[in-house]
Design a protein around this nucleic acid. Structure first.
Lengths: 334, 334
DNA sequence: CCGTCTTGTGAGAGCGCTCTCACGGTGAGA
DNA sequence: TCTCACCGTGAGAGCGCTCTCACAAGACGG
């Protein structure tokens, strides 16, 4: 509740000596207003510090107002993983030219209710849910409120009636496997992501299938949780289990960078002795020495498609999930 | 423009067999409604998938609706720097319990107009500007529109009539200097940030002053732009200029991590031969080997204070800039 | 000199909601 | 039996804006 009343269009009109209708037209750059009136209105706007009341405006125009980007993850997780920042930036950029606003809703696991309240509260016209995790209860809320929503990342629970966009994690992992095999690597390991997330299990599935097709042992698997620290630990275990391994596919760049450091700190040469391939193609992949060979996770396109899907959904159209194909960036680590 | 009209409170009321007023009360949990009416309304809400129209609601309530977090930086910059993600998360968290929404506005340098249009367009009730850069033109817009706003990071231009929150960069840098000096280090260098940003120049000033107080040479300075790559390059130059240096203070952790890798890759021991101290205390500081000694940049508190200031401002109160004192985290790198 | 068209403007409705005010119904107390 | 308080409710105003419609004033052709 602001102390002083903000100037309204009525005030502007009075000061400019025109009617509210003309003031509205001038503010909205309607070409029918006489130059003289327009200038008067502009002056009044400046003098009064008038800013149109967005609520009133969108009430009349029935316009799409805002979409929420929901990140049901703990804050520290969001800090550490460039995926979220990147996603957010891409979504924002995609909507930069449109009048649609981007709302942000994050939530620590314990505070799921907050997000739920948020979605139920009619605070937004649509939602993009960005998370690796399964969100069963969130799906219920979305269903119940009929709020248009799109998942980024295939929901682990399977078809929940809400469209999603994702990269083809399975064939991406297979790409990495085939690449390493074609190099002549024969003792291959993987650091997989959490198996309760689609991205984690799909990448492991793709990897395993590819190794089996090639008749190679696919048993050398350790698991991480997509964090840097977990990557280092998993690599340590892998080296203990199989000191003779000659290649490792790591299910995320964040883990891959840590794993590579782990390998190098033991005096093992990358890629000569052990090839390292990551997944995501984050900025960090270019900064390591040697630069990291990795599978592209096209975050920008993912974001764009999610936005498109959501906008279509909000227009009442039906949409199907989108699966983006991926590719490898061959650098020098593997 | 949605294909089908969304249900309004009127529809809910009709279906529930009550008046619009009662429906409104039921939706807003007014205790005066009879249980029977409330249940009927709730049923109607569910059946129709009713969601209150936020525009109409806030039009009536004159309520504070949203604040914008403005990041006038290129997208790739925002990706790479955990400061922004961290800031965003903290601000969101701070407002999680309030009905105030967080809007996101990022902008590549070329697209400053977009942000300007955004701020002018009355899309929001207040703004927190998060940037290291000077934003002279942004200040003008804020002045002109009288939009309540707070800067995170002291504006380089000096007093622009807009309050800000910042950490005491000068004394933070002095802390680092004194720490290194008290260890007996005598050949001290610094990798400074860009000098057209307050954070960059203040940290250098504090550093230089402290060295001079101790009667030490403060001429060993190289500059970076707060990115990882620039830190490595600056360190390289420093080692060329002064192979005998025994300590380096780096004006950001991102640069410090890169600088430390650079040092170590030459077989120089940290901290035995060269001590490395960073600034920010980001997550990455804990992951290096050895872990990085650094000056705390209390992002969470900065965010909280910025939000508080802005809310006060929006209530019509006058506020003063806030300067947060800082401290060092002594780990093992220096 | 009259009708017609164009241009700029104002009056007023109405977007969906909340809140005030008034009122009918009920039960307690006189 | 009547009064009065109180509870739950409905009618209706009005938030600030845009847009439709009507209309005045001039331009223009016949």
């Amino acid at each position: 509740m602001p102390a002083r009343r903000l100037p309204t269009l009525e005030d502007v009109a009075a000061r400019a000596g025109v009617s509210r209708a003309t003031a509205s037209r001038a503010v909205n750059l309607d070409p029918r207003v006489r130059a003289q009136s327009r200038i008067a209105v502009e002056a009044a706007v400046t003098e009064l510090g008038y800013r149109p009341n967005r609520a009133a405006r969108s009430l009349v125009n029935q316009e799409v107002d805002s979409i929420a980007v929901v990140v049901p993850e703990a804050e520290d997780r969001v800090f550490a993983d460039p995926f979220f920042a990147s996603m957010l930036a891409s979504i924002t950029q995609r909507l930069a030219d449109s009048p649609v606003q981007v709302l942000l809703a994050m939530g620590q696991p314990g505070g799921r209710q907050k997000i739920e309240r948020y979605l139920r509260g009619g605070y937004t016209d649509g939602a993009i849910i960005v998370s690796h995790h399964r969100d069963d209860d969130l799906s219920d809320v979305l269903h119940e409120t009929k709020l248009p929503a799109v998942y980024v990342g295939r929901p682990y629970a399977g078809d929940v009636g809400i469209p999603w966009v994702d990269v083809d994690n399975r064939s991406g992992a297979a790409l990495a496997a085939d690449h390493l095999i074609s190099q002549g690597r024969r003792r291959l390991a993987t650091i997989a992501g959490p198996q309760d997330m689609a991205a984690g299990s799909d990448r492991l599935t793709g990897w395993t299938e590819a190794l089996q097709r090639a008749g190679l042992d696919s048993g050398l698997v350790e698991f991480g949780d997509f964090t840097s620290a977990s990557g280092a630990v998993a690599m340590e275990r892998l080296l203990e289990r199989a000191p003779d391994l000659d290649a490792v596919f790591v299910a995320s760049d964040l883990m891959a960078v840590a794993a590579m450091h782990e390998v190098q700190s033991r005096g093992i040469a990358v890629p000569e002795q052990i090839a390292v391939v990551g997944f995501d193609d984050t900025h960090a992949a270019q900064l390591t020495r040697p630069p990291l060979t990795t599978v592209i996770n096209p975050v920008g396109e993912l974001a764009g498609r999610a936005v498109d899907l959501l906008l279509q959904l909000m227009q009442g159209e039906n949409v199907d999930p989108v699966v983006l194909q991926t590719a490898m960036v061959k650098r020098t680590s593997g």
